[in-house]
């Protein structure tokens, strides 16, 4: 079966548990196709093993440690400090704009209503009490009622 061949790479990695490892070994010994596959898998495994650790590893370890030490010596929240304040200021500005804009719009709406003309029809004989300077004399509701 084709799926069985996946066991070949597992066998190279010593990942086939008994008793299946014996079965795979026997199959490799008897089946030329399995043998060929096993040799190819093993060869690739060996070639990959030739790649040694990068020479830069130790240097990188020291370098990154120094950078991390520098970061850790700063207060824990400092990395986000500026960003938090910028965010807060931006949110406040947007909120101010929205509220201000709404207030302005509401103001504009209200102004239109407040200048409506009022026509009052007075009896023909009605005279308004004026003082000497043509100003209306204020009357209390009681006084006006008596008139």
């Amino acid at each position: 079966m084709k799926t069985d061949r996946f066991l070949i790479s597992a066998h190279v990695d010593h990942e086939v548990e008994p008793p299946w490892d014996q079965v795979v070994e026997q199959k490799i010994a008897t089946d030329p196709q399995w043998k060929e596959e096993w040799e190819r898998q093993k060869s690739i495994h060996e070639k990959l093993a030739q790649l040694a650790d990068p020479e830069s590893l130790e240097k990188a370890r020291e370098l990154v440690r120094l950078r991390l030490d520098a970061l850790r010596s700063a207060p824990r929240s400092s990395r986000h400090f500026d960003l938090n304040w910028v965010g807060l200021a931006a949110a406040a500005a947007v909120f101010g704009l929205v509220v201000g804009g709404f207030g302005f719009w509401l103001g504009r709406q209200a102004t239109g209503a407040s200048v409506a003309e009022v026509h009052v029809h007075l009896p023909s004989g009605y005279t308004v009490p004026l003082n000497g300077n043509s100003q209306l004399i204020k009357m209390t509701s009681f006084e006006s009622g008596n008139r």
Binding site: F6, E36, K47
Partner: peptide, 23 residues
């Protein structure tokens, strides 16, 4: 099982890339 399959396929593809074709 999936890991097993992927390792097998990875090595096979590497073999092809490195010119180790099947005889």
């Amino acid at each position: 099982g999936n890991v097993k399959v992927r390792v097998f396929r990875a090595r096979n593809q590497l073999a092809q890339l490195l010119g180790e074709e099947r005889s």
